[in-house]
Design a protein around this nucleic acid. Sequence first.
DNA 1: ATCAATTGCGCAATAC
DNA 2: GGTATTGCGCAATTGA
Lengths: 182, 182
Amino acid sequence: MNNQNDTGTPSGSGNQDTNVNFGDPGQTAEPLIKFKYPQRPQTVPAVQNFGGKAPPPSKAIVKGELEGDQDDYVKRRQRNNIAVKKSREKSREKSQITSERIDQLKEENCVLENKVEVLNQELKVLKQVFMDHAKGFSGSGIDLPDLEQLEKLLGHKLTDKPGTSQMHDNKTNGPSCSGSKS
Amino acid sequence: MNNQNDTGTPSGSGNQDTNVNFGDPGQTAEPLIKFKYPQRPQTVPAVQNFGGKAPPPSKAIVKGELEGDQDDYVKRRQRNNIAVKKSREKSREKSQITSERIDQLKEENCVLENKVEVLNQELKVLKQVFMDHAKGFSGSGIDLPDLEQLEKLLGHKLTDKPGTSQMHDNKTNGPSCSGSKS
DNA sequence: ATCAATTGCGCAATAC
DNA sequence: GGTATTGCGCAATTGA
């Protein structure tokens, strides 16, 4: 139950010494306070068995580093710590970039929405004018703008909303997007 | 990606991992520990990071828990561990959502780009027809469609690219976006 | 077979 | 006062 066992017990003064503290030699002049950040008593981990017991066979670490080459182990840890730090920094950066990407996409979206709106307006105006004049030409002896052909080209009736035979519904498209023209 | 828990392991009992985790409901009745290392040698002190900031006085741990109320301390650690887990899960979730949000925005963008393209095409056609006929009407005795007025409405010359007096440059707008009409 | 990169985890500090 | 977040090192895994 007392998972902690002595070595891990927080009451150890200074730093525990099983470790080497190579990361910063000549430091730790700390009198009483044990960890500011020093290190971990590791309360939970709870491996309470080690009363000098050999850990379960695992990889190569046990035999290699812990028993023999501690130095190797330490070096390995050192390198891994660096790697971890690096990896996390990278992760944080990625996160940041992702966040910016979202803003960027939102902005692009906004611009495009505005563009669509403008184009719709222009189209509307143009069509209206077109229709008006087409009406006027009717019976004037002059070739009518071939409405049918035009409509074929457009893919929809001139009186329809433009787009892809689907409406854009600008009305409801209100303020989903702030200013940002082109 | 990798990892142990992917398979939906409830993280409860003793499969995976190194630690016993007393804080878990469902408790690990597993007497089995897979730790290679008796303890954490805690290789690196890690202090000295952060620009050599002088460590502020410790909190209550030193006086309160570490020396006396170990029980309190353990409970606190238990709760914190749970909180940490929760927080990280939340973080992962958020990340996931963010990722999905990006895809969503990309898709929206794609749709809008296509829309713009279609509208530009329509506009182009319409204007062309318009211009052609305007030419034909010239000298026909019939009222010309009032180009000037129209252009005023549009905000640009009929021969210009539409949009906001800025071109859209469809040509270079190639395949930045796959299919996804509307 | 080796070593960097990732990832879950607990600790401790700190933000809230 | 507590929970929530965050940086850190450890150990296991994955991946090149």
